[in-house]
């Protein structure tokens, strides 16, 4: 396995920020009522991750240890502010729905953790690949939770995509033959949904582990 594909896999699966590290849960739980909300927040988070990792990686030789954390936060916060403004300008209707949670990306520990453990130590290529993996992992978890909650809670899938893609997006909506349970849209649904996703991921990881260790008894993987 090459270095970059193992980096990608780490963010996507092995160290998934939402499902394994349990980072960035506040926006994760708050906006995943529909797939479209989850998608936009996931993309915004990924954009911030890519930008901050790239900038911090380029700055890494100039960094001073005693002020590195404030600088990371400053860089993250300015990119989040920029992303917030751009979303407000380009996807105004969606911004009305999830705008409250975009500034919270600043406090997403997955981004600070990437800055501290990867970007400030590694070259541009590694930093960006790692950010891509973590960003896609977070986006995937958001969209999965959004899909579960939208189908079970609202009885639709991919509704509201016209806010992202214009009129054509409305055609994506799939109506379910049931109307959905309110509890899934409310906060408890978010926690149960996330628990199901984590359990599902652990189940698959353990099964993969067992079959791997049956072939190679020495290999350890958690």
């Amino acid at each position: 396995m090459t270095e970059s594909s193992s980096l990608l896999q780490r963010g996507l699966w092995k160290d998934n920020p939402a499902l394994v590290q349990l980072l960035g849960l506040c926006p994760l739980l708050a906006v995943t009522t529909t797939v479209v909300n989850a998608t936009l927040l996931g993309i915004a988070t990924m954009a911030v991750l890519l930008a901050t990792n790239a900038v911090i990686s380029l700055l890494r030789r100039a960094l001073v240890p005693s002020v590195r954390i404030p600088l990371f936060v400053l860089i993250i916060a300015s990119f989040v502010t920029a992303v917030d403004l751009l979303i407000n300008a380009l996807f105004h209707d969606l911004h009305l729905l999830i705008g409250l949670f975009i500034p919270l990306i600043i406090t997403n520990c997955a981004i600070l953790a990437q800055a501290e453990t990867v970007a400030s130590k590694a070259g541009l290529r590694t930093a960006v690949t790692s950010a891509l993996g973590v960003g896609l992992g977070f986006l995937g978890a958001l969209v999965a939770l959004g899909a579960i909650r939208e189908v079970l809670g609202q009885g639709t899938l991919f509704s509201g995509f016209e806010m992202l893609f214009g009129e054509a997006g409305a055609a994506l909506e799939i109506a379910m033959p049931f109307s959905g349970a309110l509890a899934v849209v409310l906060a408890p649904g978010a926690f149960f949904g996330l628990a199901l996703l984590i359990a599902g991921r652990n189940f698959i990881a353990q099964r993969a582990n067992r079959s791997a260790s049956a072939l190679e008894p020495n290999q350890q993987d958690t």
């Binding site: 400053l74 860089i75 300015s78 990119f79 502010t81 920029a82 992303v83 403004l85 751009l86």
Partner: peptide, 8 residues
Amino acid sequence: AAAVITVA
């Protein structure tokens, strides 16, 4: 950082 925000 100020430049990024100004442009946006």
